[in-house]
Amino acid sequence: MANSTLTKQRSAALQSSVALKSAMAVTGGILVLFLIAHMYGNLMVFGGQEAFDDYSHHIREIGEPMLPHGGALWIIRVVLLASLLIHAYAAFALWARAKHARPAAQRYVVRKSAQSPSRRYAAQTMRWGGVIVALFVIYHILHLTTNHIAPGGASDSPYERLVNGFQIWWVVLSYLIALLAVGYHLWHGIFSALATLGVNKAGRERALRLIATVVAAAITVGFLVPPFSILFGLVS
């Protein structure tokens, strides 16, 4: 009897807010690992057109001949898309629960944070910041992957696509805004994901926050270096 009750309780707990945010943490982790790999690829631009285009071409050859041409890339794409959808679904479900837990009619007349404003800002903008990042990802894929949006001219060479685009100031500006949004999202997100997965322990919080700060800053800066180098003519 007791065991069957517990089994029922366990399956209920799979729908709990803790389970939802764990799904968010794991999928967010996958996306962060992808970002790091993506950033590494971007920095290849400093090796010149040949190195960059070779790298980009080689991604399609991973696992050959075990996998068909582009097979590994499609596996990565499917995993990333699934992660993104699960991440967004969990975010939406948690948002809806929070909304219900304190409806608009019950909002405080005066609201003040008891924490430092910058950290609070990062935590507070997770939901809308996430939406902005998602919209940016669509824009970014249309721009540099499918080349449907081609400011500065479309090209078959990934290197040329990159250089053509980032010679225009407003393209760089749009990426700057998006990457700052990504940076803020990761600043709270990385800490939150680690805490959610149970890594936070007494005396460890500062270290975890430091890791989140360093990784978020490294990703933001690492992604911004190529566009700005192109804009200022260091890469052409």
Binding site: L6, Q9, R10, A13, S17, K21, L94, H100, A123
Partner: peptide, 19 residues
């Protein structure tokens, strides 16, 4: 498991580690 289920059943929101 039981306490978290009850917590959610009472219509509290989820934690997002804001602090």
């Amino acid at each position: 498991v039981k306490m978290v289920n009850q917590h959610d059943e009472e219509e509290f929101g989820g934690c997002t580690n804001i602090g």
